[in-house]
Simulated assay, not measured.
Amino acid sequence: MKTPISWLAAVGLLLCAAGVSMEHLKAENLNVIPPDQHNLVLNPGMKVLPRDCYEMLMTSSGKARDGVYLIKPGDSPIVAYCAMQEGGWTVVQHITVNSSVNFDRTWAEYKQGFGDVTGDHWLGNEYLHQLTRGPGRYKLGVKLVDQDAITKMGEYDPVLVEDESSGYRLRLGLFQGTTVDALTLDTENYLHDNQKFTTKDKDNDNYFQNCAKLEFQGVPGGGWWYDACAGANLNRRNVIYWQKDCNKERLCKYAWMMVRPSDTVKLVYSGDCKKDEL
Results as ranks from 00 to 15, higher is better:
P4V: 10
A17W: 15
G19V: 04
E23P: 01
E23L: 13
E23M: 03
A27Q: 03
N29S: 10
N29P: 14
Q37E: 12
H38Y: 12
L40V: 14
L42N: 02
V48G: 06
V48L: 11
V48S: 14
S61D: 08
G62T: 06
D66I: 02
V91P: 00
I95H: 01
N102K: 08
K111W: 10
D120Y: 00
D120C: 00
W122F: 05
E126Y: 04
L128P: 02
H129K: 09
P135Y: 03
P135H: 11
G141K: 06
V161E: 00
E162N: 08
E162I: 08
Y168N: 05
L170I: 12
F175Y: 15
T178P: 07
D186Y: 13
T187P: 03
E188I: 14
Q195I: 11
Q195E: 14
K200A: 15
K202R: 13
N206F: 10
Q209L: 10
N210A: 13
E215F: 03
G222D: 02
A228R: 14
A232Q: 01
N238L: 04
N238V: 05
N238F: 04
W242F: 14
Q243V: 04
C252G: 07
V265P: 08
S270W: 01
D272T: 03
D276Q: 07
E277C: 05
L278T: 09
